[in-house]
Deep mutational scan, measured.
Amino acid sequence: SQQIATAKDKYEWLVSRIVKNHNENWLSVSRKMQASPEYQDYVYLEGTQKAKKLFLQHIHRLK
């Protein structure tokens, strides 16, 4: 749906803004993002596993 696509774009923007180093780990980054509406919306719509998967894809691109 359009809502999910929009939430994903915003979440990816948030991840790219916060995660600048491929050594970052999911636990510390997800804690930093918990207060962000972009993170909350995406997790609400798609779940934590998908959020983690996108985070890991971003990390992989930074290597």
Rank of each mutant, 00 (worst) to 15 (best):
Y39D: 00
S1Y: 06
E38I: 14
Q2P: 07
I59Y: 03
R17M: 11
V15N: 00
K10P: 01
E38S: 06
Q34F: 05
R31G: 10
Q34A: 12
Y11I: 00
Y11L: 06
P37Y: 03
N25M: 08
H58R: 03
Y44Q: 15
E46L: 05
L56I: 14
S1C: 07
K8A: 07
G47H: 10
L54T: 07
K53I: 11
H22A: 14
R61N: 14
W26R: 02
E46R: 04
Y44N: 15
K52C: 03
V19F: 02
R17H: 09
S16V: 05
K53H: 11
Y11T: 04
V43G: 00
I4W: 01
H60N: 15
D41H: 13
E46V: 10
I18T: 14
Y39L: 02
Y44A: 15
V29T: 09
Q57I: 05
F55H: 02
I4E: 02
S1D: 14
G47C: 00
I18P: 01
E46D: 01
R61E: 12
Q34E: 15
Q3R: 10
L27W: 11
A35D: 14
I18K: 05
A7Q: 00
Y11H: 03
V43M: 04
K10W: 06
P37K: 15
I4G: 05
E38T: 04
Q57T: 08
R17P: 02
K32V: 07
S16C: 11
L45I: 04
K20H: 11
E38V: 09
R17K: 13
S30C: 10
S36I: 12
W13D: 15
G47Q: 02
L56H: 04
A51E: 00
W13R: 15
A7E: 02
L56G: 02
L62T: 03
K8V: 04
Q49W: 06
Q40C: 09
Q3P: 06
P37I: 12
R61F: 08
H58V: 07
D9A: 14
S36G: 03
M33L: 12
K10D: 07
K50D: 01
L54W: 03
S36T: 12
N23G: 10
Q34K: 10
M33I: 09
K63F: 04
H22F: 12
P37G: 06
R17E: 11
S1P: 09
V15Y: 08
Y39E: 00
T6I: 13
L56V: 08
Y39G: 02
I18C: 07
L62V: 06
R61G: 07
L56C: 00
S30Q: 15
I4A: 07
K10Y: 00
V19T: 06
S28G: 06
I4Y: 06
D9Q: 15
A5Y: 06
S28D: 14
Y39K: 02
V29A: 15
K50S: 12
S28H: 13
L56P: 01
V19Q: 04
Y42P: 00
I18S: 08
Q2H: 08
T6L: 12
Y39R: 01
Q34C: 12
H22L: 09
D41F: 04
D9Y: 12
T48K: 14
L62A: 03
Q34I: 10
Y11F: 11
Q40I: 10
L27S: 14
T48L: 12
K10I: 02
K10V: 03
N23D: 13
R61W: 08
H60F: 07
L27K: 13
N25K: 13
E12V: 12
R61D: 08
T6H: 11
L45E: 07
K8W: 01
D9R: 13
Q34H: 08
L62P: 01
W13G: 15
T48I: 13
I18H: 09
A5D: 10
R31Q: 14
S36H: 15
K20G: 06
R17T: 12
H22Q: 14
L56M: 10
D41S: 11
E38L: 09
S30D: 02
V43W: 01
V29E: 04
I59H: 07
K20D: 09
D9W: 13
W13S: 15
Q57V: 07
Q3W: 10
Q49V: 11
S30W: 11
F55R: 02
K53M: 14
W26Q: 07
F55C: 04
M33E: 00
A51F: 03
H22I: 08
L45G: 03
L27P: 13
Q2M: 13
L14R: 02
K53Q: 15
T48E: 15
Y11S: 00
L54S: 04
H22K: 12
Q49A: 13
D9M: 15
A5C: 09
V43S: 01
K50Q: 12
S28P: 04
K10L: 02
K53A: 14
K63W: 09
K8T: 10
Y11R: 02
N25R: 07
K8N: 02
N21F: 14
P37S: 10
K53E: 15
W26M: 02
Y44W: 09
I59F: 01
L56S: 01
W26V: 04
W26L: 03
Y42V: 01
A5P: 08
I4P: 06
L14F: 09
S28W: 06
L45W: 06
R61H: 12
N25H: 08
N21G: 10
Y39Q: 00
I4V: 10
S28Y: 06
G47W: 01
A35C: 10
N21D: 15
